[in-house]
């Protein structure tokens, strides 16, 4: 008697298995990656919400750490698109993209890789990265630029760093910040600590700020942290690359000292969205491709949403939906 029950359950599962085959290709589906920093999550959520609202797509979102792994997943067709790649952080862009990056009609970057990943267009966000100290510390010690850091390194030390100062560094190795390398080249006697996630780094910085302790923090803007706390950049040297660009894996990470990356600060980042070429070449995804070409989210809008999400702890989807409802004039032009 129980056996029949088991058998009927198995039978039902078989029916499910067979029935599922026809179902899978029915809906207009896209598969997006959820980034590992809030700004990236918001940019992608804006794109996803518009694709779902206006074009009837069904977008599946998967948490995936950014870095070369994500690019390869996109090239392999496991994920269809990802948002807001920062050129200074990506290593794979020059290998896998084969297109010009255009921002407001101007060419701001050009790539000549193998074209295994499709450059969908700019996301509109322009990023800036630097090292920052809280304003109270800058005033107290008179720190104006990175050159003044060494004099006060003892103030920035923690139990883990001994007598060197501590930089709360770029949290994820896959972002290719090369913090320690930069510090060494510039002769800043600090130790870069890689804390694994944005959350961990920010938790440290936030706690330190609340206790009014000095700290040196790597961070990018737009970021909610600047909305809540008063931070001053240390003005790293202006971005330059070695000529020829030797600091690559192929070039065995040979640097050219203070003359070029990573002995300098970051470039201004015109961020971009990228996707799988085969997926976006399909006729049914022409709408999505057109949309991504036109999308251009402004820093100020992302910053506003960042405050809602990270400071007021609201749901990303809710915040983005609210922004879309209140600002149709800003995103309707992307639909043309």
């Amino acid at each position: 008697m129980k056996l029949t029950k088991t058998i009927s359950a198995l039978f039902l599962s078989l029916v499910l298995l067979i029935g599922s085959l026809g179902q899978a290709n029915a809906a207009k589906r896209l598969h997006a990656a959820i980034a590992d920093w809030t700004g990236g999550i918001i940019t992608c959520e804006v794109a996803v919400a518009i694709l779902e609202r206006e074009y009837g797509y069904k977008v599946k979102q998967t948490v995936f750490p950014s870095g070369t792994g994500l690019w390869e997943a996109i090239a392999a067709g496991e994920i269809d698109f990802a948002c807001e790649s920062w050129p200074s952080y990506a290593e794979a862009d020059s290998v896998m993209l084969n297109e010009d990056l255009i921002y407001e009609g101007k060419v701001v970057g050009s790539y000549s890789g193998d074209g295994s990943v499709d450059l969908l267009g700019t996301s509109g966000i322009i990023g800036l990265s630097d090292y920052w100290i809280p304003k109270y510390a800058a005033e107290e010690f008179g720190i104006k630029t990175w050159k003044d850091l060494n004099k006060h390194k003892a103030k920035f030390a923690t139990i883990e760093t001994g007598n060197r100062g501590r930089l709360i560094g770029c949290p994820v190795a896959g972002w290719n910040c090369h913090d320690q390398k930069r510090l060494d080249i510039l002769g800043i006697d600090f130790q870069a600590d890689e804390l694994g996630t944005e959350a961990a780094a920010i938790a440290e910085a936030k706690a330190a700020y609340m206790r009014k302790e000095p700290f040196l923090l790597y961070l990018w803007s737009p970021h909610w942290f600047f909305g809540e706390f008063d931070m001053v950049g240390v003005q790293l040297p202006e971005h330059k690359v070695c000529d020829p660009d030797t600091f690559t894996e192929a070039g065995n990470w040979k640097d050219c000292g203070k003359k070029g990356w990573p002995g300098t600060g970051w470039a201004k980042d015109y961020t971009m969205n990228y996707g799988n070429p085969a997926v976006f070449a399909k006729a049914e995804n022409a709408d999505a491709k057109k949309f991504f070409e036109n999308m251009s989210l402004q820093n100020i809008d992302q910053a506003k949403m960042l405050v809602e999400v990270d400071i007021k702890k609201r749901d990303v989807k809710e915040v983005v939906a609210e922004w879309l409802d209140n600002n149709p004039d800003k995103w309707k032009p992307w639909l043309k």
Binding site: S66, G67, T68, W71, A173, L195, G196, A200
Partner: peptide, 17 residues
């Protein structure tokens, strides 16, 4: 949350493909 050692290597391997 900032752990080091082999676990970090696994993560880095994943992120760098």
């Amino acid at each position: 949350i900032g752990g080091k050692g082999l676990g970090l290597e696994v993560f880095n391997g994943l992120a760098r493909s």
